[in-house]
């Protein structure tokens, strides 16, 4: 039996972490995440800037996939979580639907995978090019961690308990 008090507590905790992740999200996406120096060329790119570069070079498919999985879906998941725990502006039927969406979005949001990819790149390329992480990496890691904590602490019972 889940007590109402515990549910409210859980809601607040999830909302706190979700909001924290959302607050870090713009910094993670907009600020330069990689600084690469190779043969006198210096390149600095953010996640969003990288996606735009891909679009500019005509790689709409790859760009679209990264945009979807690393920006749109994580954002959807976070906003859905926030709605379920904090805003509660929808009625019960819609909330159930929102929960299902959130589950799907959560499965396909690949921010943590991207973080891993960055780490692998650091290890693999460190001998070939001069390679630094930009300020966004700090925001990005925290964002991933907080959104994981928020998802794990979320208890679906809250959906059927009115706030």
């Amino acid at each position: 039996m889940v007590s109402r008090a515990n549910l409210t507590k859980m809601r607040h905790r999830v909302a706190a972490f979700t909001l924290a992740a959302l607050a870090l999200f713009p910094a993670a996406v907009l600020l330069p995440i990689l600084e690469v120096q190779r043969l006198g060329h210096y390149h600095q790119s953010s996640i969003l800037g990288g996606i735009f570069d891909l679009f500019a070079h005509g790689s709409y498919f790859v760009g679209g996939i990264i945009l979807l999985f690393s920006i749109v879906l994580p954002l959807t998941k976070l906003i859905a979580l926030l709605e379920l725990t904090w805003l509660c502006s929808l009625d019960e039927k819609h909330r159930a639907r929102t929960y299902r969406w959130m589950e799907i979005a959560g499965k396909w949001s690949m921010m943590d995978v991207m973080l891993l990819a960055l780490l692998v790149m650091l290890v693999k390329l460190s001998g070939l090019v001069e390679f630094h992480f930009g300020p966004a990496v700090f925001a990005f890691s925290l964002c991933v961690a907080f959104s994981l904590i928020a998802t794990l602490s979320f208890d679906p019972h809250a959906i059927w308990e009115s706030a």
């Binding site: 008090a5 409210t8 507590k9 706190a16 910094a27 600020l31 300020p135 925001a139 907080f146």
Partner: peptide
């Protein structure tokens, strides 16, 4: 059960910290 005690979670400082960190990074 009295709920008023739990209106504010102890986790909110995380949110405040993140917001500050985000602004600071920008």
């Amino acid at each position: 059960v009295p709920v008023h005690a739990d209106r504010s979670s102890k986790w909110w400082w995380i949110t405040a910290f993140s917001a500050l960190a985000s602004v600071a990074l920008f």
